[in-house]
C-alpha cells in the first residue's frame, strides 16, 4: 500500500475550536422510476471531539442516508447530492477526490452498521476482516495484522480472542458480532464514529452492554460519535445532544435533557409519548397517527402537518424554519411556544 498522506497535516483554521464535523444544508435525492425521492432536505448538524450526537427518526426520515453521505458510501447514481457542504476537520469533503475520501474512510471516520451478520463478510474470518484495516491502511504484514486483530478483539472484550481470531462471523453470537463491528471501526482510532442503529438487531440485555462499551471507548479515545437510532431509550444515557429528523429535515435539535423534559416539536412529543412506561401500566399505548410521507411526494408546508394534532392552516402552506428556542435549541414548528407551554 502507498504511504499515508496524512490529512490532518493540512492546516485547519483553529481546529481545536471548530467542530470536528459540520454538515451544512445537506440535500440528498434518489432518482427512481417513481420520480425523485428527496431523502434529505437541508440538514445541518455538527459534532465535536468527545461529543455524542444522536440522530433520531423513523425509517425513511433520512437519518441513515445523511450519515452515508458523510461517510461517502452512497451509490451515486441513483443517489445525488445537489446541494450542501460536509466539513470534516475544516475541509469540505464533498469537494475532495474519490481517493482522498477513501483515505478518510476507516482511518478518520469509521462506521458501525446495524446488522453485523449481514455486514460482515460471511466467507472471511473475523481476524482477516479486522486485520485488513492494518494491512491496507498501514501496510502491516499478515502476521502483524493478525496480532493487532487479537489485540482489538481483546479490547472490545471478546473472550478467548486468540482462539477465536480464525472463526467466521456466523460462529459468533449477535452481541459478539456487533463487538467485532465496533472493533473494526475502532481499529485505526478514528476521530469520528458513525453508528447506524448499532443495537437494533440485538437482545435488550445485550443492547445495554454494547452501548456501554461504545460509550466507554468513545470517552477513552475522545472520539466524536454520531448515533443513529429510532430508539429514544438508547439515546437518553449516552447522547449529549439530539437531532430529531422527519421527512429529510431536522425538526428539533436540542441538548438531551431539554428534549426529555420539554419537547418543543409535536413530533418529538409524540415519539416520547409512545414509549411504554411502567407508571402507565394498563393504559393504551400512544401511537402517532398515520404514516411517514412518501419521499417522492412530501406534503407542502410542514411535512408533519397531516399527522400533527396541532396543525393549522399555516402548517399546510409555509415550511417552518428552525426557530431558536433558548440558546442551544431549535424547533421547526410554527407553534413551538404552544408545544413547550402545554
Amino acid at each position: 500500500m502507498t504511504v499515508i498522506d496524512d490529512i490532518s497535516d493540512v492546516p485547519t483554521p483553529d481546529a481545536s475550536l471548530a467542530p470536528l464535523l459540520e454538515v451544512r444544508d445537506l440535500h440528498v435525492e434518489f432518482h427512481t422510476r417513481d420520480g425523485v425521492a428527496k431523502a434529505v432536505n437541508g440538514v445541518n448538524y455538527s459534532v465535536s471531539a468527545g461529543e455524542t450526537l444522536a440522530v433520531l427518526g423513523e425509517s425513511g426520515s433520512g437519518k441513515s442516508v445523511s450519515a452515508q453521505a458523510v461517510m461517502g458510501i452512497l451509490d451515486m447514481p441513483p443517489a445525488r447530492i445537489p446541494k450542501g457542504e460536509i466539513f470534516f476537520q475544516g475541509r469540505d469533503m464533498l469537494k475532495m477526490s474519490g481517493e482522498e475520501r477513501r483515505k478518510i474512510r476507516g482511518r478518520k471516520i469509521a462506521m458501525i452498521f446495524q446488522d453485523a451478520l449481514s455486514s460482515l463478510n460471511p466467507v472471511l474470518s473475523v481476524g482477516y476482516q479486522l486485520g485488513e484495516m492494518y494491512r491496507v491502511h498501514q501496510g502491516l504484514s499478515r502476521k502483524d495484522a493478525k496480532a493487532k486483530a487479537i489485540e482489538l478483539m481483546d479490547r472490545v472484550r471478546i473472550p478467548a480472542a486468540r482462539e477465536r481470531v480464525g472463526d467466521y462471523p456466523h460462529q459468533f453470537s449477535g452481541g459478539m458480532r456487533q463487538r467485532i463491528m465496533i472493533a473494526m471501526a475502532l481499529a485505526l482510532e478514528p476521530d469520528l464514529i458513525i453508528a447506524d442503529e448499532p443495537t437494533t438487531a440485538l437482545d435488550v440485555t445485550v443492547q445495554a452492554q454494547v452501548m456501554e462499551l461504545l460509550a466507554e471507548l468513545q470517552r477513552e479515545y475522545n472520539m466524536g460519535l454520531i448515533l443513529i437510532t429510532h430508539d429514544l431509550g438508547v439515546v437518553a444515557d449516552v447522547a449529549d445532544k439530539i437531532a430529531v429528523m422527519y421527512a429529510g429535515r431536522i425538526v428539533e435539535d436540542a441538548p438531551v435533557h431539554d428534549i426529555y423534559a420539554k419537547p418543543a416539536h409535536p413530533y418529538t412529543k409524540g415519539l416520547l409519548q409512545s414509549i411504554p412506561r411502567l407508571d402507565q401500566k394498563g393504559q393504551e399505548l400512544y401511537a402517532i397517527k398515520g404514516l411517514p410521507p412518501n419521499l417522492t411526494r412530501i406534503p407542502s408546508g410542514c411535512a408533519f402537518n397531516p399527522r400533527c394534532p396541532m396543525a393549522q392552516d399555516i402548517c399546510r402552506t409555509d415550511v417552518p424554519p428552525l426557530h431558536p428556542v433558548g440558546t442551544a435549541r431549535g424547533s421547526a414548528c410554527h407553534f413551538w411556544k404552544e408545544t413547550l407551554g402545554e
Binding site: 476507516g106 449481514s118 491496507v136 473494526m184
Partner: peptide
C-alpha cells in the same frame, strides 16, 4: 448490493480489493 460490500467500502479499501477479496469469492460459489 450486499451489506458486507458496503462495509468493505466504508473500511476505506481500494475498489480493486473490494472486488477481488470481498465480492468475487462470494460471487463464485
Amino acid at each position: 448490493r450486499a451489506d458486507y460490500l458496503r462495509t468493505a467500502v466504508a473500511k476505506g479499501l481500494p475498489r480493486r480489493r473490494v472486488i477481488t477479496n470481498h465480492m468475487l469469492r462470494n460471487s463464485l460459489i
